[in-house]
Amino acid sequence: MRLRLICLLAAASLFAAACSSKPEAAPAAGTRPAPPVSPAPQPAPDLPQEIIALPFRLDISLAPDLADALVAAGQTLRVSMMVHAQPRPGQPAPGGRIVLGEDTRELAVRNQSLTLTGRFDREQARRETVGLQQVRIEVYSLAAGPQPVQMDCPVFDAPLPITVETGAQVDCTLGPG
């Protein structure tokens, strides 16, 4: 029985030794160990976009003589909307402003109300601009013939949060010519 116990303990010791991790071999004399491998540098991740969408109403009013002239000439209306803001100091900005979002629509010639949405990336606005976002709206005609109708439409440019609350109004008249 004693021999059996010794054999059992010897087998268990051998099994434990075989399963244990082995120490790394020492480098050969006169050589240095290899430096640890570091992972390749990862590029900085792009910041996630956080798109803000603020809808507002735009009312377009055309003087009757302007509407008649546009219809007779076969012209349509185009509405161009841009969300912009002042650049941070040192931030390059063509035209003195950072454009954050744009939308253009082609419309029939008539008085109308439509919903536009000021869309912009909040992270871009935080990184590149200061102050409130502005909305700029221009209404103009698309000439279809040799004699374009001259329109006089004021440019709407106001803070976007106020425009969302109050809406925008553009009143167009027949221009000179």
Rank of each mutant, 00 (worst) to 15 (best):
M1V: 15
R2T: 10
L3Y: 05
I6Q: 07
L8V: 10
A11S: 09
A12Y: 01
A12F: 08
F15I: 14
C19A: 15
S20R: 12
S21T: 09
K22D: 02
P23G: 11
P23M: 13
E24W: 07
A25F: 01
A26Y: 01
A28C: 02
A28V: 14
G30V: 09
T31E: 08
R32C: 10
A34Q: 13
P35Q: 13
P39R: 15
P39H: 08
P45D: 02
P45N: 02
L47D: 06
L47N: 02
Q49K: 14
Q49D: 12
E50N: 12
I51D: 02
A53S: 14
L54Y: 01
F56C: 12
L58K: 04
D59N: 13
I60S: 04
I60C: 03
L62G: 05
A63R: 06
P64A: 06
D65G: 00
D65T: 11
A67W: 00
A72P: 00
A72N: 02
A73F: 03
G74S: 09
T76C: 00
V79A: 11
S80Q: 15
S80M: 12
S80G: 13
S80N: 15
M81W: 09
R88H: 05
R88D: 02
P89A: 14
G90T: 04
P92M: 02
P92E: 07
A93G: 03
R97Q: 12
R97N: 08
I98Y: 03
G101H: 09
T104L: 09
E106W: 04
L107V: 10
L107F: 05
L107C: 12
R110C: 05
N111T: 14
N111M: 05
L114P: 01
T115I: 13
L116D: 06
D121E: 08
A125H: 10
R126D: 12
E128S: 12
V135E: 06
A143Y: 04
A144F: 07
A144K: 15
G145T: 14
M151P: 01
C153Q: 10
V155Q: 07
F156L: 12
A158E: 14
P159G: 05
E165G: 06
T166S: 11
Q169F: 11
V170G: 07
L174I: 11
G175K: 06
G175T: 07
G175I: 07
P176K: 13
